[in-house]
Design a protein around this nucleic acid. Structure first.
Length: 789
RNA sequence: GGGCGAGUGGUGGAAUGGUAUACACGAAGGACUUAAAAUCCUUUGCCGCAAGGCUUGUGGGUUCGACUCCCACCUCGCCCACCA
């Protein structure tokens, strides 16, 4: 059949339908109890000055496909959009060019909105939100307040991560390889008084993912490892000639008899008290050096260094004196910052003991010749415990020598205060008598002042505002002052999915009815880099709100998927410095939004990182031109049959998010349609199947076929299972497991009949001549394997 | 060091126990054109003139049959990491 391939004007039709959907409010979400609800969410964007990246549309398109598909299934769909507007990059850029971050952020949001709209996503713009808007951060502050009022937010002095370039503290989750996650500066450790959220109260819950959560296994184990639960014991060691004791944490209390020395982290407070005169100078120098080392240098150090304090402790089990050392292989922020070293049964202790000639005592029998042996076994040299199994004896031994069984987590409380301007002010008042309280709820929002120089100095820029403290003394008593730090932006983003349910509510963070209707999120798509940050924080906030009775669910995201990174054409991560960045605006200009959306789905499996290839998008655009050029004919039986298979395939693949094979199946179908023709009804169904992925061209063709309503209010096509069966099928014929020919038979042909036809095949002749079929294996409609001798 | 993935043509990939290399890109040849673009047709895993043989990182195993399942190893990617 002759089909003339014509190009379509994407500029014209894409703008046209975007406008149509907006004016018709096709994607406006209104709670409707008569249909199943479907809440589809992308991780909202940080509106940076660079604009949209080609990586953004990959995740957004996937969510969009599912949202539009569910709408066509008749479901009550919500697909909201918003902006994670507070944060360091906007502020740093603002400082650089000398403009207020509020102004810049506003301009960035305008730009992002325009770009996102040009991709034709099915967003409900009525629910658009912006975390830097007082009507939003009022409720971020309210969450801080109720956390504080219920004991989940507190202030303490602690050794914290400090970014010297951005001049602010950072959460543990924001330190990557010892560097600031934003600017890359080497992070320092400082003792500072800061605000924390008690995320550790929920450590066990966060480490566990109930069955109802359909999350990638890697994300679940990533979170579990980040929480890092270990069971063990705390054991106290008496210090010789000192009253105080050193408490250590160990997961192997069963090896107590083998503890031949103790090690303190360089930051340990007891060091000053126990160090002897002779060793004082050496220890002080070591501590100073350790503090100057970056976190990175300390964690990947090749050689273990350390210094003897001159002091000794008593091993409670052996009652012998053991030396106390200081070494930076022991970290201060895990366990008690002190360890009992058992060199015979721990790799690190063994390495250290060998280097510094410390005694090594074996207490677990091992069948391997070399030490250290870290496994379990029969205890030896262990007093009355000798002969017991190390696996069982631990708890008993700990208790016998005054220790207690405890649990340790790697997870730390979430440090949420920042000494920066562009964030939500912490709603706390410091009273004249040293007391602390949260602000009255009527006072919210505590607005971010504008009369400040927002350059970071290490102290919060809010200190420079004259207006910020006005009225505080009058309301809260003489000498009362507002807290000057702002909140980590991750606080803002840890509850935005709740606000989407009821974004204009002025009296609550979201109404109970709306939350009950829409939550939890049915599909959440975003980058896997948020595993141990945003996704953990969001689950924590939901669990707190649940515990305090504000919401009736304790997990926010039912189904989670991560989009793979789009790499440059060189296979490297896109970056300005490498010059391999693809600008989506230019791609849309040349090929259209539909082609970009489809190409990003066609590249390969959704969750895999894949390189960009400009020739690839040209191929997709060629395909769309071919779809555009299809003209209905009166009769096309083969295509009429094939469309049923396509409906099944596309439906199955959407459910499984196998977008790449949706595209290839549609290509195969269109190749057939061009060859054999297509009827109007098959063409209609084809464009309906394409509509979630390439909505503009689908809507245009649909309307051209004579429809007045949007394709997105039509019903998703159904297939007839009877038509999935073929009249005849090709059966592969194997002899002794090797392919020797094919047969075309009826799918209902029986085994004996197929064998008869197979043996008669000329291509089999040389392989079965003079031999006897001793066995056969037949898979109806697929393969027959003849075993001959 | 630990955890999680992944290794298939020149390239992105398809096939999750049943005809390996679908679909697309690229390449080569041809048609149309004064020419080019666009479009269409043909070829395209490797070796071989052919018959035929070989082929899913490597080696073994299970099976009538393995890219697919099992064991060991190698390589790459991501995440975590002196966590006691």
């Amino acid at each position: 059949m002759k089909v003339v391939i014509k190009k379509y004007s994407h500029q014209k039709i894409e703008r046209k339908w975007q406008k149509f959907w907006a004016t018709q409010q096709i994607f406006k979400a209104t709670a409707d109890n008569h249909h199943p609800k479907y809440y589809a969410l992308d991780m909202f964007a940080y509106p940076s000055g660079d604009g949209l990246h080609v990586g953004h549309p990959r995740g957004y398109t996937a969510t969009d496909i599912l949202a539009r598909y569910h709408r066509m299934l008749g479901h009550n769909v919500m697909r909201p959009v918003g902006w994670d507007a507070f944060g360091l990059p906007a502020e740093n850029y603002a400082i650089k060019i000398g403009q207020p971050p509020a102004k810049l952020t506003k301009a960035n949001i305008v730009r992002f909105s325009k770009q996102v709209k040009s991709l034709g996503f099915a967003y409900d713009w009525n629910r658009e939100l912006n975390t830097a808007d007082p009507s939003y951060y009022k409720w971020t502050q309210w969450i801080f307040k109720i956390l504080y009022d219920n004991g989940y937010a507190y202030q303490k002095e602690a050794c914290v991560n400090w970014c010297p370039k951005d001049k602010t503290v950072l959460a543990n989750e924001q330190v990557v390889d010892g560097c600031c996650y934003r600017c890359g500066a080497v992070v320092e450790q400082k003792n500072l008084k800061q605000w924390f959220f008690k995320i550790t109260d929920f450590a066990d819950e966060l480490a566990c993912h109930p069955d109802k959560l359909d999350w990638p296994e890697s994300t679940k184990t990533g979170q579990k490892n980040w929480v890092g639960k270990s069971e063990g014991a705390e054991i106290e060691f008496k210090i010789k000639s000192e009253k105080s004791r050193i408490k250590v944490f160990t997961t192997r209390p069963d090896t107590l008899f083998g503890a031949t020395y103790l090690v303190l982290a360089p930051e340990h407070p007891l060091i000053k008290r126990i160090v002897t005169k002779e060793q004082k100078h050496k220890i002080e120098k070591y501590i100073k050096d350790a503090r100057l080392k970056s976190v990175l240098d300390r964690t990947v150090a090749k050689e273990k260094t350390g210094v003897f304090t001159g002091a000794c402790a008593i091993n409670p089990a052996t009652e012998s004196e053991i030396p106390i050392w200081v070494a930076d292989y022991v970290v201060t922020d895990y366990g008690t910052g002190a360890i009992m070293a058992v060199p015979a049964h721990d790799d690190r202790d063994f390495e250290f003991a060998t280097k510094h000639k410390l005694p090594i005592t074996e207490v677990v029998e091992s069948d391997q010749s070399k030490l250290p042996y870290v496994g379990h076994g029969k205890l030896i040299n262990s007093g009355r415990f000798t002969g017991q199994s190390s696996q069982i004896a631990g708890a008993d031994m700990a208790e016998t020598f005054g220790g207690k069984i405890t649990v340790q987590y790697k997870l730390h409380d979430w440090l949420v205060s920042r000494q920066r301007y562009w964030g939500a002010p912490i709603p706390i008042i410091h009273l004249a008598d040293g007391g602390v309280r949260s602000v009255d709820v009527e006072e919210l929002p505590i607005k971010l002042p504008t009369d400040v120089d927002f350059k970071p100095t290490g102290e919060s820029p809010l200190a420079l505002s004259k207006k910020f403290q006005s009225g505080v003394a009058k309301k809260y008593g003489k000498g009362a002052r507002r807290e000057l730090d702002t909140m980590d932006t991750f606080v803002c983003s840890s509850w935005y999915f709740l606000r989407y349910c009821d974004p204009h509510n002025a009296t609550e963070f979201a109404g109970a009815e709306s939350l009950k209707h829409w939550m939890p999120v049915d599909l959440y798509i975003g980058g896997s880099e948020h595993t141990n940050g945003h996704l953990l924080y969001a689950r924590f906030i939901v669990k707190v709100l649940h515990k305090l009775g504000y919401i009736n669910f304790n997990e926010p995201f039912l189904k989670l998927r991560h989009q793979g990174l789009i790499l440059g054409t060189d296979g490297e991560k896109m970056s300005k410095s490498k010059g391999n960045v693809i600008n989506p605006d230019e791609v849309i200009e040349v090929f259209g939004a539909d082609a970009l959306r489809m190409y990003e789905m066609f590249m390969g499996p959704f969750d895999q990182p894949l390189p960009w290839n400009t020739a690839g998008i040209e191929g997709v655009r060629r395909f769309l031109n071919r779809v555009w050029s299809l003209k209905p004919v009166a009769k096309a039986p083969e295509t009429d049959r094939a469309i049923h298979k396509l409906i099944k395939k596309v439906t199955d693949d959407i459910e499984q998010m196998k977008f790449n094979t949706i595209v290839s199946s549609c290509m195969e179908f269109v190749n057939l349609a061009i060859d054999r023709g297509i009827t109007k009804s098959a063409l209609e169904r084809l464009v309906m199947l394409l509509a979630p992925m390439t909505p503009h061209i689908a809507e245009e063709i649909y309307q051209k076929l004579g429809h007045k309503q949007s394709i997105f209010v039509s019903d998703w096509p159904k297939f007839d299972p009877k038509l999935l069966l073929e009249d005849s099928v090709t059966v592969a014929v194997q002899v002794n497991g090797r392919l020797r020919g094919t047969l075309s038979v009826s799918p209902t042909a029986d085994e004996a009949e197929v064998e008869k036809l197979a043996i008669a095949l000329p291509s089999l002749a040389t392989h079965i001549e003079g031999k006897k079929v001793v066995k056969r294996h037949y898979v109806p409609g697929r393969i027959i394997n003849l075993i001959v001798k």
